[in-house]
Simulated assay, not measured.
Amino acid sequence: MGPYTYTDKFKKQFQSSKLNGILFATPPTKLRSGDTFLPRPPPVPPLIASNAYLGPPSHCLQRIFKEAGIKVYHSAPKKLHGSLQSHKDKKDPSTRAGVYRIPCECGKVYVGETGRNLPTRLKEHRAHGRRGDFDKSAIVKHSHITDHRVNWEAAEIIAPIQVWHPRRIREAIEIHKHDTVPQDIGFHINDIWLPLLPTNGTSISTVTP
């Protein structure tokens, strides 16, 4: 046995310290030829069930399921008023913002959009006619030039939309769809989309701005 060196003393001090299990841990045994590591199986997710809460019977069922390894969550039972329709009358679409249509007796229509309600917008169109401001209302100008009667009573909101940008897009689609009086085409739609848009007499229910 050789002389006791400083290295041996240093090693002995570390072997007796807390770092012994880290610095001087026994290396793992080498695998023999043909040995393989088996991957750790993934954790099995717990079985979960949901059941309407029915008072004490629900707690009894919860204990039974728990013994079978199934975790049960209780949910509130469906109440009667949730299945009943509201007694309140539906809101009149003419009182909402959206895209509107004003027909003329000749069969053409004017399509516009408004952030206010329809009666207010129709009053503005009529006021332009009384003051002679025909360039401010395409339907009034059309009526003045052709001597056609505007069917104000048949004016309607055809697409209630509150947000301005989608409303402008829908207005442009409706203008493309209808046979309109001479008017501003509104929001520009790229020609690439025109083959996909409906034309006169077709539905627009599947087109969403």
Score class of each variant (00 low, 15 high):
Ala159Trp: 02
Asp133Val: 04
Val140Asp: 08
Asn151Asp: 14
Pro93Asp: 11
Pro103Tyr: 04
Glu156Gln: 15
Ser137Met: 10
Gly112Phe: 00
Trp152Lys: 01
Lys141Leu: 04
Asp133Gln: 15
Lys141Trp: 00
Asp135Ala: 10
Pro77Thr: 15
Gly98Asn: 10
Thr180Ile: 05
Gly129Leu: 03
Thr95Ala: 12
Gly132Phe: 03
His144Glu: 11
Lys108Asp: 04
Gly132Leu: 07
Gly98Val: 05
Thr120Ile: 03
Arg121Ala: 07
Gly112Glu: 02
Glu67Ala: 15
Arg116Val: 03
Glu124Leu: 11
His81Tyr: 06
Pro166Lys: 07
Ser75Leu: 11
Lys91Cys: 13
Ala76Thr: 15
Val109Asp: 03
Glu105Thr: 15
Ile173Gly: 04
Glu174Val: 04
Ile157Leu: 12
His87Pro: 10
Glu174Pro: 02
Val72Asn: 04
Ser143Arg: 04
Lys71Gln: 14
Gly129Ser: 08
Ser137Val: 08
Thr114Tyr: 04
Pro77Gln: 11
Glu174Gln: 10
Glu105Lys: 15
Arg131Gln: 13
Arg149Tyr: 01
His178Asn: 14
Glu67Phe: 08
Glu124Val: 09
Tyr73Gln: 11
Gly107Glu: 07
Arg126Ala: 09
Asp89Met: 01
Pro93Trp: 05
Asn151Met: 11
Glu124Arg: 14
Pro119Met: 09
Ala76Glu: 13
Gly69Val: 10
Ile158Lys: 06
His87Gln: 09
Arg96Cys: 15
Ile161Pro: 02
Ser143Glu: 06
Phe134Asn: 14
Glu153Gly: 06
Pro77Asn: 10
Tyr110His: 06
Lys71Ser: 13
Pro160Tyr: 04
Trp152Arg: 01
Leu84Ala: 13
Ala159Leu: 07
Glu105Cys: 15
His165Ala: 12
Leu122Asn: 11
Arg170Met: 12
Lys91Phe: 12
Tyr100Ser: 12
His125Cys: 10
Lys71Glu: 14
Arg131Gly: 07
Leu84Glu: 13
Arg121Lys: 08
Lys108Arg: 15
Lys177Asp: 01
Ala68Pro: 00
Val163His: 11
Ile169Leu: 06
Ile173Met: 03
Ala159Thr: 07
Arg170Leu: 01
Trp152Asp: 03
Pro103Gly: 08
Arg126Tyr: 04
Gly132Glu: 07
Arg101Met: 13
Lys88Phe: 00
Arg149Thr: 15
His176Arg: 09
His81Arg: 09
Ser75Thr: 15
Ile70Pro: 13
Lys71Leu: 11
Pro119Arg: 13
Ala155Pro: 10
Leu80Phe: 05
Thr146Gln: 06
Cys104Phe: 00
Val111Thr: 06
Cys106Trp: 05
Asp133Ser: 15
Gln162Arg: 14
Ala97Tyr: 08
Asp92Cys: 09
Arg116Thr: 08
Pro166Thr: 05
Ala138Cys: 07
His74Tyr: 06
Gly107Met: 05
Thr95Val: 09
Gln162Thr: 14
Gly82Cys: 12
Lys79His: 05
Glu113Ser: 07
Val72Ile: 11
Trp164Tyr: 05
Glu113Gly: 03
Leu122Cys: 09
Ser94Cys: 14
Ala68Val: 02
Thr180Lys: 02
Asp135Val: 02
